[in-house]
Design a protein around this nucleic acid. Structure first.
Length: 873
RNA sequence: GCCGGGAUGGCGGAAUCGGUAGACGCAGCGGACUCAAAAUCCGCCGCCAGUGAUGGUGUGGGGGUUCGACUCCCCCUCCCGGCACCA
């Protein structure tokens, strides 16, 4: 044994010793093994924002509980960690304090890695990676070039938020109420070229394959399915003649059955017809300009006031030949579908409001029996598909949705004006960012050859690490040593692409890189396929759609790209099981900066002001008493300054307390409002565990075998322990870790009360052995130390997972709940095998039943075996 | 606005299939130990009435199904996540 067994719990000493033990034994280095089943346990890697926050502690403790419990259950576990190291916050930090993003990022990584180590996570650090490392991002570039060759990557124009003062593209996050976050200037929409990945080519597979993911939460699959948004509709055209030229205005609709109710057509501000009409119409041109202002966010588009203006251009209704006027609408997006929509005010809520506002015709073409249509106000049934029948629609009258759509599509097709088409809500993935701190897009622009890919042997295109962004555009554009190059094709001077990639690219395949042999000279290798897919992925619910969908897409692309006739990877889906952790929330305080931008303040930097009901209404700054606004509660994040650093907790109580508290606080999938009340309780429990173990260490070390027959009080304690273990194992399988922690507390409560009898030592030895193993995934350090001190063995990680024994659980009497008319009136004890009649007789005989029945005869008696009996009078 | 989720004591939460609502813990209150405090230990603890036994009531709000509803169905309110350049 090591030093003297301390009677007091000293987390620092215990934790240092355990961590040294694991490091020396390389306990968490994953080596492929054919003898054990593999378990690739992965938590979403953090953005190195500076310090860990409680959301990280929650995420990584959950992952570690799963990894450690599976290890003890006999799995060969891989649990890696790395850094999502490119991104906007590094540039923001540079703007604020002038430090280059590279330096800031590496400093943060060093600090946060120490914090993760202090938490005692069972991580294979030999596989650590950072996405800002050229050895990693070269493969982003390499795969991008393969996608370009296959046509999966292509160029088109994109609409971005433009800050006219800083002359820079803004992220959605940097747009506050339609204005730039630094300048306060109203944001404009601007069209610029960018590169896209054709994720829509995989839309069908991404949707269908959701059914192959039983290990994913239903809610995430539903969100992804809705996001992909597969719909079957009709793409059709309104023919028109303009300046003597015949042409067609195409639209797409899922409600072709309402086509006879079209009273106008709305096009996007950027639509060619709008541009045409704006010539010689200054008022319309001004309106189009207005439409081009504002943010590009969908939420803004959906909630803003719907506005429009007529173009004076008319198109022909494809079936009736009626003249239909074309309007410009601020709610129609050029980049989505055809940039034009048919408007049926009677059966689309948005069109209805629009028509009422501008006095446009509303023509009812769908009726529902028993419902009365009125122009006075919108009613839900107007847009209903299922109950409706066509009216005022000529030959389509009385047809239902299905029949009308089919007939109308057939008629449109016969005229060459349309066809049934499957469409997706999903749009192709735009990956170009006009930012410095990201992976360079490996392209060269040559005056004579056009856009030329960087040859593979020149990869990676290395990002200079000494730039300091100042908020006014991408500093790469000013770096001649980066931009100036020679065309790989013709050798003439050329310019390098300065756009970098979306950071979602980096995170779309990092899990595969972890699984690859460290230092491999290819993107992936045979080891990748051996470890993949990830068996258990753990991360925040905020990634339910984008990150998880992009990763699924990226996997399928890698599967479809072959090198030397071999696909890069052999799996279809990257993540077999997914646990979506609920967000850890905290209060958000902010105020408008002088220029109109916004600044955030940490909750511990303000004094909240409350109304009489206790709700926070505002706050004052601790530093100078100036007022700040209360923004409600939201996810802990660097940008909102509301993260809580776990370091103080770890320093004061140790990592085990921090881990236990986070796990105990709530079930993993639930949102958690941060409050540190209760940390004391977690610490108290661990201290009690330590002192109890110490007080009993002599009898436990004897490891006496259980006697054949235990005295009833001891048998009762033993039964309780095994019952708790059974429940805890069930909860662990359900990934409901908070009640596993509760079970451990209940076990200690039971063990403290074990009466001193013949066999007590054996019950204690068995009981502590169960408790320590059950608790070790949550609080590994203290369990490691006690396991050794109490003489169970050298390494609790090598111990088998505890299982309840059936013989310990038997009992001969059970308690049934007694109800009269469904109301709880007491209980009664019956022998385990008692039959129904015996139970009924016993129940009717009880004083409580007699009293509650008040002399009335039983009309019916419900007996739920083993649970309750309900007498109905 | 649209998509997904949530709401249970003063607080975090528990209740596996529709079967004792509030396990476990925090806070609080009372007591023991102590010169005192901390730590520790014992007890109480949803709300209302009652000295008490006990009775009534209670899982965001309203309605329904059922012998029985935190749990199932319908409607509503509020909160959280996502909405494609935060990660």
């Amino acid at each position: 044994m090591q030093e003297k067994y301390q009677p007091e719990y000293q987390p620092k000493t215990v934790e240092r010793a355990a961590q040294e033990f694991w490091n020396a034994a390389r306990s968490f280095c994953a080596i492929a093994s054919a003898r054990k089943p593999k378990y690739y346990c992965l938590s979403m890697f953090p953005y190195p924002s500076g310090k860990l926050h409680m959301g990280h502690v929650r995420n990584y403790t959950i992952g570690d509980v799963l990894a450690r419990s599976h290890r003890m259950k006999g799995y060969n576990v891989l649990q890696p960690m790395g850094w999502d190291a490119f991104g906007l916050p590094a540039e923001n930090a540079a703007i604020q304090n002038g430090v280059p993003p590279a330096q800031w990022t590496h400093g943060n990584i060093a600090y946060m890695r120490k914090q993760l180590e202090a938490l005692g996570l069972g991580i294979d650090w030999e596989r650590e990676l950072a996405t800002c490392d050229p050895a990693y991002y070269r493969w982003n570039q390499w795969l991008f070039l393969r996608m370009l060759e296959k046509g999966i990557a292509y160029k088109k124009t994109q609409v971005v938020n433009w800050d006219p003062v800083d002359q820079t593209v803004l992220a959605n996050e940097q747009v506050i109420d339609g204005c730039g976050w630094r300048t306060g200037a109203p944001v404009e929409k601007r069209e610029i070229p960018g590169y896209y990945l054709a994720i829509t080519e995989y839309a069908d597979e991404l949707l269908a394959a959701l059914d192959t993911l039983p290990g994913w939460p239903e809610r995430v699959k539903t969100m992804q399915a809705n996001w992909i948004g597969k719909s079957t509709g009709v793409r059709f055209a309104f023919p028109y003649e303009l300046d003597g030229r015949k042409d067609k205005l195409w639209v797409y609709t899922t409600r072709a059955d309402t086509i006879m109710g079209v009273t106008f057509v709305a096009v996007a501000a950027e639509h060619p017809l709008a541009t045409h009409a704006a010539r010689g119409n200054p008022e319309l041109a001004a309106f189009i300009d207005e439409c081009k202002r504002g943010s590009v966010m969908e939420a803004d588009m959906a909630t803003m006031e719907k506005k429009g203006m007529p173009t004076g251009i008319f198109v022909d209704h494809p079936l009736t030949g009626d003249q239909v006027e074309v309007w410009v609408g601020n709610y129609v997006l050029m980049g989505y579908g055809e940039g034009a929509v048919m408007a049926v005010p009677a059966h689309d809520e948005r069109d209805f409001e629009f028509a009422k506002k501008y006095g446009l015709a509303i023509k009812q073409v769908i009726a529902v029996d028993g419902e009365k249509f009125s122009l006075d106000g919108w009613q839900e049934w107007y847009a209903e598909k299922q109950r409706g029948r066509c009216v005022n629609s000529g030959k389509y009258d009385s047809l239902d949705y299905q029949a009308a759509t089919a007939a109308i599509a057939a008629d449109l097709a016969a005229r060459g004006l349309g066809a049934i088409q499957v469409q997706y809500r999903l749009r192709d993935w735009g990956i170009s960012r006009q930012r410095y701190w990201g992976c360079p897009i490996p392209l060269i622009h040559c005056p004579s050859c056009g856009t030329v890919p960087v040859p593979d042997e020149q990869l990676p295109v290395i990002l200079p690490t000494d730039c300091v962004p100042d908020g006014s555009g991408n500093p790469l554009t000013k770096r001649a040593d980066f931009v100036d190059c020679v065309c790989p094709k013709c050798g003439q001077p050329a310019k390098r692409e300065t756009d970098t990639m979306d950071t979602f690219v980096d995170s779309s395949w990092y899990y595969a890189r972890y699984a690859t042999t460290p230092g491999a000279s290819t993107m992936v290798d045979a080891q990748t396929s051996a470890w993949m897919p990830v068996d258990q992925y753990i991360g925040g619910i905020e990634h339910a759609i984008l990150h998880l969908l992009y990763s699924r897409f990226w996997s399928k692309v890698m599967r479809d790209i072959s090198v030397n006739g071999k696909p890069l990877v052999s799996y279809d889906e990257p993540f077999a099981h997914l646990l979506t952790q609920g967000m850890v929330l905290n209060h958000i305080y902010s105020r408008r900066a002088a220029k109109g931008g916004i600044e955030y303040f940490a909750p511990d930097a303000v004094t909240p002001l409350r109304d009489e009901s206790g709700r926070i209404t505002g706050a004052t700054l601790l530093a100078d008493g100036s007022p700040v606004d209360y923004q409600g509660i939201g996810t802990m994040s660097k940008s909102k300054q509301n993260g809580v650093d776990p370091q103080a907790l770890i320093d004061r109580y140790g990592a085990d307390t921090a881990r236990f508290f986070m796990i105990f606080a709530s079930p993993p999938e639930q949102t958690l409002e941060w409050a540190d009340s209760g940390v004391e309780g977690a610490y108290r429990f661990l201290r009690r565990l330590w002192t109890q173990a110490h007080a009993r260490h002599a009898p436990i070390r004897r490891q006496a075998p259980l006697p054949a027959q235990l005295a009833p009080p001891l048998a009762g304690v033993r039964r309780e322990l095994h019952l708790l273990l059974k429940q805890a194992n069930y909860d662990l399988d359900k990934q409901q870790f908070n009640t596993v922690a509760s079970a451990a507390m209940k076990m200690l409560n039971a063990l403290e009360k074990v009466p001193a009898l013949e066999g007590t030592d054996a019950v204690l030895a068995e009981g502590f052995g169960i408790l320590l193993r059950l608790l070790s995934p949550i609080t590994p350090h203290i369990c490691h130390a006690l396991w050794r001190e109490l003489g169970y063995g050298d390494d609790i990680l090598a111990a088998p997972w505890p299982q309840p024994e059936a013989v310990a659980l038997v009992q001969d009497e059970i308690e049934l709940v007694l109800q009269v008319n469904g109301k709880h009136r007491g209980s009664l004890r019956v022998k385990v095998g008692a039959d129904r009649t015996a139970i009924e007789t016993a129940a009717l005989a009880t004083e409580a039943a007699q009293k509650a029945m008040a002399g009335q005869p039983a009309k019916k008696i419900v007996v739920v075996p083993g649970r309750l009996i309900n007498i109905v009078v």
